[in-house]
Design a protein around this nucleic acid. Structure first.
Lengths: 199, 199, 199, 199
DNA sequence: TATGAATGAGGCTTCATTCAT
DNA sequence: TATGAATGAAGCCTCATTCAT
């Protein structure tokens, strides 16, 4: 097997193992057994377990970023369509490849220091990009007023929580329904307007 | 030291250690060193590390639940006040005792199977209670229409994400500001109404 | 077995193993097998192989230094007697406990960086002390003129080489004979005086 | 590259690596990286690491022996000149190619059994030759009376110790000064004659 | 009830060597 | 003759847990 192929194979196996067992639960043994490869072979490709996880993480980040495409500013309608397309693309990817959310959601701490920081940077990255996109949305009149960082945190939290519940097996509403719900939520909030309620 | 006191002391030390090091990073050694107790003593009080973590978790759950009080149905205004009081109480507790969110947010997976399930049950519990509260809110006309489970997930996600970012050091907006922001969000959403936008 | 006793036992076994196998050839396995102790036990007493070797070395240094006693200045005759006594004591120790020279001579390099430096310091220490002793000897009229550092190097080299040959099995002259020989050497050199030779 | 050339190149690289890292610290990887050659290639030239070291050692021995030329018996003066020439040649070589003493002094034990024996034989060889030369020196009236084996050991020890200190960085006197000192030493010893001292 | 020495399974990593291409 | 991917034995170290005192 060629070097790059073997590397890919190992990364794939590692991703599966990390998804199933978590960082600490995963052992190099698990990985090489799944790959059908000798112990030494593994270390010809990766310096150590941490480096392996780093590499897996980077692949996941990559996979996330390639699933969404930067939005081309145009008519508000066109932008809306692109947003929807991005969401669909991201969600489809996450559903087809559940290892991605499983690994990304599993550990926000306690993995190893380097991986922790990498994950931290990734989520901060997400927040920053989302925040900027929301700011542009405000310019286009698609997004209402408000602190875009706070909004970005809200959106990320909602998505992460939904997927967490999915993975934990606590049967949240089906994705389509959930999206409909949060769309309403995004549009008009969920509190009866205080001014309106006495009405 | 009396048996229950010793037990409490060990639980407290364990909580600190788990908060600082994470489940896997924490060692029994850390705990007994902090408690100034011999190895064997520890095992007189807890069967094993997993049981210890179980117990710590249960304490945390307890602490969360005692920080909020069930809402007494009355006037909409009274209910609103109680909701606010609950939020204030919860947030105060989380801020005063950061080990609580640290441990609860740290591992949604990859700890050990039993602890994982306990955490899962806890969050499902949160969702259920929140969902029921929201349903009652709908009856009272405080909460707008919509699937309360979906809403509960949104709220939990937002809170968890905010605290995660706080703990990871990625400097989210200050809590007061964030609450103002999400209050606006909760009230009127953040998308410009499509129907309204062409207007 | 009490903690200090176990520690002594492990150090003794380790010393034997290091003497027989050399630093790299020695494995923790060898040590614990000889000590009849579990792997973990070993690590309750020493941080790692390097620390173990450090400790063994320090014991050896100690053993060397306690085998010689500082010389009390008095009559030249008295000093000579003390020197002889020191040599006898040192040699007796080295002969009774051949692991001492075996380990000290085995590796002047390539062990591990820390141990290397420790050994280096030890030999430098020897050189310094010897050099000072020789200087005092010059004051007393026992030692002739000359650079005492150079002399110290010569003496150490001679002793080390003799013992090396002994340990390598290349049958040098018996110790008593060797001492007689070098005594002559020390007294009058071994070159026929050039000035004298044409005589 | 022709087979003998490749072999020479590998031996040269190996020598450098062994000198820098010591026998155990050196890895085949280091050697082939320095040589710019594939793993398999290396094993086409040498059976294994031990054989490689063997070969390096043999080269070193060769280099030592070619640096000195057998002494042609003639006048005492002529012999003295040849001896000086040999010392100069040997020292020059050792100074120009410090890898030679570095490897020869590094391990008198603990390398691998075969190499150990080879080194042992070499030093025994040195001793034998030196001893014979000294015996001839006695015949010529250049060397004083005494056991030539003991003398040989002394001389070897002194040289080895001086070079050891040099390589360990413990700043011995400069070579020229050291040689002057030991010359005095060789000529007339360093102990004040006991018979003389009461004088 | 407390102690702390002892345990050993389990995991990570290295590196000399082989072999099919 | 050269290549370099693959091997696996061998070694180091950790840490939850046990048990005799």
């Amino acid at each position: 097997m060629s070097r790059p192929d073997r590397r890919k194979q190992l990364l794939l196996c590692a991703r599966r193992v990390f998804a199933k067992e978590g960082y600490h639960g995963a052992s190099i043994d698990d990985v090489i057994r799944k790959a059908g490869v000798a112990r030494g072979t593994f270390y010809n490709y990766f310096d150590n377990k941490r480096a392996l996880f780093q590499n897996v993480l980077e692949e996941l980040f990559e996979q996330i970023w390639t699933s969404v495409t930067p939005i081309e500013t145009g008519s508000a309608e066109g932008v809306r369509a692109q947003i929807v397309a991005n969401f669909v693309s991201l969600f489809t990817m996450l559903e087809n490849d559940p290892d991605v959310p499983r690994i990304l959601l599993a550990g926000s701490t306690g993995l190893d220091p380097v991986a922790d920081r990498a994950l931290g940077r990734f989520y901060q990255d997400c927040r920053t990009r989302l925040s900027k996109a929301l700011a542009r949305g405000q310019d286009l009149g698609i997004v209402g007023p408000g602190d875009t960082t706070a909004l970005a945190i809200c959106i990320m939290g909602i998505l992460k929580e939904y997927w967490s519940q999915l993975l934990l097996g606590s049967k949240p509403p089906a994705l389509a329904k959930f999206l409909t719900e949060i769309h309403r939520f995004f549009e008009s909030g969920w509190l009866q307007n205080e001014a309106a309620s006495p009405r």
